[in-house]
Design a protein around this nucleic acid. Structure first.
Length: 723
DNA sequence: TATAATTCTCTTTTT
DNA sequence: GAGAATTATA
């Protein structure tokens, strides 16, 4: 058997706990895997082991990851171990797996198989429309806030009805109204948002026992990566599939839980042993990635969090270099420092692909990019304005989507006047309102625009042309034209390309290139897909994420947010913007979610293999104008013997200058004692203010001069200091 | 009624 | 310093 690996070989080179996890037979398994402890290796080898030893047929394996990239990598590695049998396995993300289930079973819930997947922006537009329809002032209640409430509810598997039952405030009352209308509309449009993919999949499994039994029987072994990031809906979905046979193996690290804002519930991993009392628990603590210095630093920082499953990473790779900490004047100096260091390293023979720069927010990349361009340092950015979020790409996709789903109002409003055809807000509203009252699809209504009351002659004519173009395209789509061709024709015949060419600007040219790129993506799909279909193509695109675009390019350094860095590793890592208010983020400080920020810091530190450099700026352009910050508390949590920083007293923070393990322990008292009524203070994000009250529990009330707002802050955590 | 210009606002992280 | 929303203009 040349294409497969013998069982003995599967276990060679594994340490004891790794081996234990790989060879665990039937029943639940919890693998607590510290950063860099070889969890992917364990997962892939376990899959191979299950197959080689006859515990499972390849088709009985369901392996879940969070990103497509992780899924691809896992599939590749499994294929390497077991050969082409890997193709029968479901190795994909939660969302992709749910979407695939729903393509088959969504008709049971009143959707067609062609349902559209709305991304966050699409969904927000719909929320906005619902707000308008209900006559709610979008300034009083922002679509964004309402959307996040709805998403939150969905992640907890709460329906609009459930939500209404729990309403407490006027705001929640409003959300309940919008939620109800939103659900009604999105279903009518035959569309699902990201959260719906999970919710509806759970609905199908709960409502139709025969479907549940089918999937439970089909997937006799379920494996889940990054289990600490699962939300309640995902949890429930797993229970429905694996609750009976209990062959559920999860891998996770509670210290790397950084997605609670997206509904991830850290309790899912902390309570796994309560859900499955018979679970075998394996801890992987040996790290194969980083130097001991880097690991000790990571351990020390995260030790400040409470309620963890204790674990301590260790390595036999040796001490390594101290962590470097640099203070710079402002963000420009910071960027120049990074660029200079990269140049120096490259001169020393380090490959650019070995270097990564992490930051807290995407906005921080711009200054850095400017500087790198000026220094001639080639780079790639992961995240930021994503390819699939560019307006022209979304337009093109909306055209294709509308061809397949004539009820999709969001896509329709996107494309109706793009390129310009003289169809403005008023005409569109009229058509949509008409479709709403008659209950027909927008497509059908547009097809007989002449009969719609109140529509001007020019608009009727424009709609007629629009409609005949789309009809032609739909015929070709239904005849099974290759998607690449279909897209190219769409962009030609709708006049999209023409309009771009007429602009004669650099930007338009760039947009044209982006669209050609998309056509290329479609052609590639046509060539590679087993059974190409428009629906599957659109689904793939909808669930595509940033990390998927990551390249192992020899000549580029990589820039990304700390969140995007999870799961990756680089020999040399820079973490920039380590200032209170930036990282940890001001909002996290306000909302008391400091522990998650700290885990984010832990994730960042543990990405580094050899060298770690942390930088912070004394001042930076934040919020329009220049703001003065203070060094991140996370830097102060690093034991000083692991860094090259001279022990500097932190201004206004007695006793925390050179903190060590548990250095924050006495901070509450010290911080509180240092603030009194009437003190003038400076906040890293809000600027100057005065203390108007000191409340029990370490809370101070500060009135800020800048926006005259009054805010309650945790004295212990807020980035404030006395003037 | 559609588009251009201007004012205003808000800034986390993302499948 | 960018994006959206509102207002002014054609």
């Amino acid at each position: 058997m040349s294409t497969t690996t013998a069982t003995d070989d599967l276990l060679a080179g594994l340490n004891e706990p790794q081996r234990e996890a790989v060879t665990h037979g039937e029943g639940p398994l919890l693998i607590l895997a510290g950063a860099g402890s070889g969890k992917t290796r364990v997962l892939t080898h376990r899959i191979a082991w299950l197959v080689q030893t006859g515990h499972a047929q390849p088709g009985e394996i369901l392996a879940i990851t969070f990103t497509n990239k992780a899924a691809q990598e896992m599939r590749g590695r499994v294929e390497h171990l077991v050969g082409r049998r890997a193709r029968a396995m479901w190795v994909m993300t939660f969302h992709a797996a749910c979407a695939r289930m729903l393509r088959a079973d969504a008709p049971r819930l009143g959707y067609t198989r062609q349902f559209t997947i709305y991304d966050q922006a699409d969904s927000r537009r719909l929320v906005k429309r619902c707000l308008d329809d209900l006559g709610i002032d979008p300034k009083r209640f922002t679509p964004r806030a309402i959307q996040s409430q709805i998403s939150d509810a969905k992640n907890k598997l709460r329906s609009a009805e459930d939500y209404r039952g729990l309403v407490g405030s006027f705001f929640e009352q409003t959300v309940a109204d919008v939620f109800e209308l939103y659900e009604q509309q999105i279903h009518r449009m035959n569309a699902m948002d990201f959260d719906d993919l999970l919710v509806r999949a759970v609905n199908v499994l709960e409502l139709f026992p025969e479907v549940r039994e089918r999937y439970a029987a089909a997937f006799r072994h379920v494996l889940v990566d990054e289990y600490q990031d699962t939300n309640h809906a995902q949890y429930r979905w797993l229970q429905l599939i694996a609750g009976e046979h209990r062959n559920l193996a999860v891998v996770g690290d509670d210290d790397q839980s950084i997605y609670s804002f997206r509904g991830a519930d850290i309790r899912n991993i902390l309570d796994f042993e309560d859900d499955f009392p018979e679970a075998r628990v394996v801890k992987l603590e040996q790290n194969y990635r980083s130097t001991q210095t880097i690991l000790s630093a990571a351990n020390a920082v995260v030790a400040n969090n409470r309620g963890r499953k204790t674990k301590a990473l260790w390595t036999d790779l040796g001490e390594g270099d101290p962590i470097r900490i640099r203070e710079l004047d402002d963000e420009h100096a910071e960027a120049r420092f990074v660029a200079g260091e990269v140049e120096r390293l490259v001169e020393e023979g380090v490959g650019r692909a070995e270097i990564a720069v992490f930051y807290r927010t995407n906005a921080q990349s711009r200054v850095l990019e400017d500087t790198l361009v000026r220094h001639g340092v080639p780079y790639q950015v992961i995240g930021g304005t994503k390819f699939y979020e560019r307006a022209e790409i979304k337009d093109a996709i909306a055209y294709l989507t509308f061809l397949g789903n004539p009820q999709d109002v969001v896509s329709f409003t996107r494309i109706a006047n793009s390129p310009r055809r003289g169809l403005g807000q008023t005409s569109l509203s009229r058509v949509i309102a008409y479709a709403n009252t008659t209950g027909e699809s927008v497509w059908d209504v547009v097809a007989r625009a002449a009969t719609i009351p109140g529509l001007g002659a020019a608009a009727v004519k424009a709609f007629a042309r629009f409609n005949s173009t789309l009809e032609r395209l739909r015929e070709r789509a239904e005849a099974g034209a290759p998607i690449g061709d279909l897209l190219q024709e769409t962009l030609d015949e709708t006049g999209y390309f023409e309009a771009l060419e007429a602009e004669r600007t650099i930007e338009a040219q760039g947009r044209h290139e982006n669209l050609q790129e998309l056509v290329g993506v479609a052609r590639e799909y046509d060539a590679n897909a087993q059974e190409p279909s428009l629906g599957e193509f659109l689904q793939q695109i909808a669930l595509f994420s940033d990390q998927d675009g990551l390249r192992d390019d020899e000549g580029l350094i990589t820039l990304m947010t700390l969140h995007n860095a999870k799961g990756l590793e680089y020999p040399i890592v820079f973490m920039i913007g380590c200032e209170d208010g930036v990282f940890p983020h001001a909002r996290a400080l306000d909302e008391g979610t400091l522990e998650e920020e700290r885990r984010l810091c832990y994730v960042g530190i543990t990405r580094a293999e050899r060298e770690l450099v942390l930088t912070y700026a004394r001042a930076r352009a934040l919020f329009g104008q220049r703001a003065y910050g203070i060094r991140s508390r996370f830097i102060d949590e690093l034991p000083s013997d692991l860094t090259d920083a001279e022990p500097v007293e932190r201004p206004g923070r007695p006793g925390s200058g050179a903190s060590t393990w548990g250095g924050a322990a006495s901070r509450t008292d010290a911080a509180l004692a240092s603030f009194a009524l009437g003190d003038d203070v400076v906040h890293a994000a809000f600027g100057d203010g005065v203390i108007t009250a000191v409340e029990p529990g370490g809370i101070v009330v500060v009135r800020f001069a800048g926006d005259r707002s009054e805010r309650k802050l945790m004295a212990e955590y807020a980035p404030i200091r006395k003037r």
